[in-house]
Design a protein around this nucleic acid. Structure first.
Lengths: 109, 109
DNA sequence: AACATTACTCTGTCTGTCAAAGTAATTTAT
DNA sequence: ATAAATTACTTTGACAGACAGAGTAATGTT
């Protein structure tokens, strides 16, 4: 299980990526992250909803209410065009971050 | 220039790596980071000295005073054996983090 | 003498993450 | 039928890491 303070700062990217594939709701995203990472990383509920608030405020995502199929009322999020541009930036930033940190981590494995 | 909140959490790794090469003092580390990253990343002074305090408290590094060659009195840091083990963990953690984030970022470049 | 550079320290602030506790609806087990 | 589990979202308060800004002090340059 990876420490969350090491993933810190990349949550926007992860969540945005999932929403960019298709509209999703919170609980679904949390499940999907656990699934895709094989439980090597799990996002905490409080964190997830804090990210939503932040991204919605910046108009990177927008919300609408969906079905009440299993349990509580689902709140879906879709990515805006601003959000798509932002995600693109984040992807580029990630390659640069990898390069930079690798500069220091290489030769030690 | 990479945002610092995206490097956040990796500063211990970067700094420890530099100290593990040879004993170093703060100002030197700050210069070395700028140099190696070609100014794509610069550590802020306040942050650097905060990292030192944290790592010293955990007995991952230890300090001693050195020359007063150019300007202020230099405070050198060396890595402890505990620190070497810790750095090793951090290196492994970094490969895992890369894998995990890449899971989400791939197919978008 | 004045200024730039080297070198470290401290205080207060901001932001992201999270634990904990709560609300509410639906499904499953007894 | 009803208790328990699961699905689903929200809010509050706390904590840790990063940083701006201001300060101290010695040496080197003009």
């Amino acid at each position: 299980m990876v420490r969350s303070d090491i993933i810190r700062g990349h949550l926007d990217s992860i969540i945005l990526r999932l929403i960019s594939e298709k509209d999703r709701y919170g609980y679904e995203i949390s499940q999907e992250i656990s699934l895709r990472t094989n439980n090597r990383f799990q996002i905490k509920e409080a964190t997830l909803y804090a990210v939503f608030q932040r991204l919605e405020k910046k108009e990177i995502i927008e919300a609408y209410y969906g079905d009440v199929s299993h349990g509580g009322k689902r709140k879906y999020y879709r990515i805006t065009s601003l959000g798509k541009a932002y995600l693109n930036e984040l992807v580029n930033e990630w390659s640069e971050v990898k390069e930079i940190i690798d500069l220091f981590m290489e030769g030690l494995e």
